[in-house]
């Protein structure tokens, strides 16, 4: 039901009569404009009211109200950062959980690293063998401690025959006595570990100007892996033959060993 123009005119006229201003045309026009608000269309029912009236709801979800749809879009845009943040956190959680579940970080670390370095052997450069120690540098201290003063090797006499000439033939090699001054338990252990080999080497190989062979270190890549070499050389203080690792490395470099 909407009120007709005649009805509005009657209402306004009655009101103006009650107020004692029946003849004011300008006022009447203004009041009729105000009375026109009664002719507004009924809003589309929504929600509970729509259910009560038995008509389809004009809710925003139903898409019948474009203005309401725009409001819903704004609400969705407002929540978008929260949704994205949740998705990223969920993806990160799934990734971390997947790695943990695969056991990739739970492998036996010592074994893993042992396998990794087991086959490692230091490279030697292509310098003439006569000028280079045959074995890896970390092994050198072990071997240099082998010659015991109490049992001079047989070859020492023979070496003595060559006497003064021999030291000059190996200018880059440090004298064995360099490590003798401070014998270490590790060095002794290493010496005991291969006395026969060292003795055989000393016996079977006449001095040829290379103390590398004389020290008993086998030529070519060492059979001793990197890990063992350090376990046998480092003492409780972390020194090698009383020297720091840096000193030893400098010495190795001077010997021409490429690390």
């Amino acid at each position: 039901m909407t009120r007709s123009d005649a009805d509005r005119d009657n209402l306004v006229s009655e009101l103006m009569l009650d107020a004692g201003v029946p003849g004011d045309a300008l006022l009447k026009a203004a009041l009729e404009s105000i009375a026109g608000l009664s002719a507004l269309p009924a809003p589309a029912p929504r929600g509970d009211l729509a259910a009560l009236l038995g008509v389809p709801s004009a809710d925003p979800d139903g898409g019948t109200d474009p203005g309401a749809d725009e409001l819903a879009k704004r609400r969705r845009r407002k929540h978008r950062p929260v949704v994205i943040a949740g998705a990223v956190l969920t993806a990160m959680g799934l990734g971390i959980g997947g790695v943990a579940a695969s056991g990739g970080l739970q492998q036996d670390s010592p074994d893993f690293f042992n396998k990794l370095i087991a086959g490692w052997a230091p490279h030697t450069n292509l310098a003439p063998q006569s000028l280079l120690p045959a074995g890896p540098a970390p092994d050198a201290p072990k071997v240099t401690a082998v010659p015991a003063p109490s049992s001079p090797p047989v070859s020492e006499a023979a070496a003595g025959a060559q006497g003064a000439a021999s030291p000059s033939a190996v200018p880059n090699h440090p004298p064995a006595s360099a490590f003798k001054g401070k014998p270490l338990a590790a060095a002794k252990k290493a010496a005991k570990a291969r006395p026969k080999k060292a003795a055989n080497t000393l016996k079977g190989t006449p001095p040829s100007g290379s103390t590398g062979s004389a020290s008993g270190v086998p030529a070519g890549p060492s059979g001793v892996n990197f890990k063992d070499s350090f376990e046998g050389v480092l003492d409780e203080r972390g020194l090698v033959g009383g020297r720091t690792v840096e000193d030893v490395l400098d010495q190795i470099v001077r010997l021409g060993v490429r690390l």
């Binding site: 039901m1 009664s38 002719a39 507004l40 009924a42 809003p43 009236l53």
Partner: peptide
């Protein structure tokens, strides 16, 4: 509802 909703809305 049809009789009064528009007037209530206007009011």
């Amino acid at each position: 509802y049809q009789a009064f909703a528009g007037q209530v809305f206007g009011y």
